[in-house]
């Protein structure tokens, strides 16, 4: 039996994740890896929204902020363990996405972009201004995950870097697996139909409003979980996590890697997480080089890095 493309993609990613640490010269690379995976998870969610369903969001950092602060606030105020706080953050994000998604997903194009942008800015403003609760712009400390201690009890002594590398990788692989499944499901096909033409999709009996909302909620949960993992890993969270720049960064990662493809999105997050680290040698020219790379990719590989290269390799280059 020939392996389906879905399993091939997933297996390739899993092998890569497992093999890479063999080449790590120091513990720092685990941190970079973990960041790539956390970003990859959030961006995979955006692929479902932007790549599958063709809707735009410039406010997804807002959901990351909710996930992040759930992990900071719930253990401190409700006594909830951090692992359940991730869940709580995801539930709140999903409910909120449902609530605001209903009205704003009626908007299209620029209008939708602006509405989601407004949502993201609102979340970040609340986090900044509710000083008594969130610690304001200085941020607040986040309790660590107890899981690492439990593992240590079983004789599995991991450094913080290794632990988060593994956990983030697992989270991302599960996220990628779900997204790849969705792609081939009836819902996924309907989403892609919606992307192609909203009118046509409606004509063939697709509930367009419900489908858009579904994509929005799913991607919000992805962003929320990614935000939670980031906060737990950093043991500290500031309103920057919900900031406008973070939203833009996520969309850029998705678009750069190839917004229609899950693996492309992961590639995009890998590149944009790695580049600033590699470019530190250029010091003040870092931003310049970063911008240049992005412009070049957009001009020469307009469908995003991975899909464009894949198409060229298959000889169907545009």
């Amino acid at each position: 039996m020939k392996l389906s493309s879905k399993w091939m993609q997933l297996a390739a990613l899993a092998v890569l994740v497992a093999v890479l640490p063999l080449f790590f010269p120091s513990g720092y690379y685990y941190r970079v890896g973990a960041l790539i995976f956390v970003n990859g998870l959030a961006v995979t969610g955006l692929v479902i929204l932007i790549g599958y369903a063709g809707q735009i969001s410039l406010g997804h950092a807002g959901f990351a902020g909710i996930g992040g602060y759930a992990c900071a606030l719930a253990p401190a105020h409700l006594g909830l363990p951090p692992s359940l706080s991730i869940l709580l953050g995801a539930v709140i994000s999903a409910l909120l996405a449902m609530l605001i998604g209903k009205p704003i997903l009626r908007l299209r194009g620029y209008y939708l972009a602006v509405a989601t942008l407004g949502f993201g800015i609102l979340v970040s403003m609340v986090l900044t201004n509710e000083r008594a609760l969130t610690g304001g712009p200085d941020g607040m400390a986040v309790q660590g995950l107890a899981l690492r201690k439990i593992l240590r009890g079983w004789g599995w002594k991991l450094t913080s870097g290794e632990f988060w590398y593994i956990l983030s990788a697992l989270a991302m692989l599960v996220g990628v697996w779900i997204a790849l499944n969705l792609f081939q499901s009836a819902t996924g096909r309907a989403m892609r139909a919606l992307h192609g033409s909203e009118v046509a999709a409606r004509t063939v009996g697709i509930d367009v409003a419900r489908l858009k909302l579904q994509a929005f909620v799913i991607s919000a949960v992805y962003a929320s979980v990614a935000g939670s993992l980031l906060a737990l890993q950093n043991q500290f969270v500031t309103p920057d996590i919900a900031g406008f720049m973070h939203s833009i960064e996520m969309v850029t990662m998705a678009v750069l890697g190839g917004v229609g493809s899950v693996l492309g999105a992961v590639t995009g997050s890998a590149i944009l997480t790695l580049l600033p680290q590699v470019l530190t040698v250029f010091a003040e020219y870092e931003q310049l080089v970063l911008g240049l790379v992005m412009i070049l990719v957009m001009i020469f590989l307009p469908r995003g890095l991975l899909p464009s290269i894949a198409a060229k390799l298959k000889g169907r280059g545009e």
């Binding site: 941190r31 970079v32 980031l230 500290f236 996590i241 680290q277």
Partner: peptide, 11 residues
């Protein structure tokens, strides 16, 4: 960016 700061500190 606190997130970057942590990465650089690790580095």
């Amino acid at each position: 960016d606190p997130n970057k700061a942590r990465t650089f500190a690790t580095r």
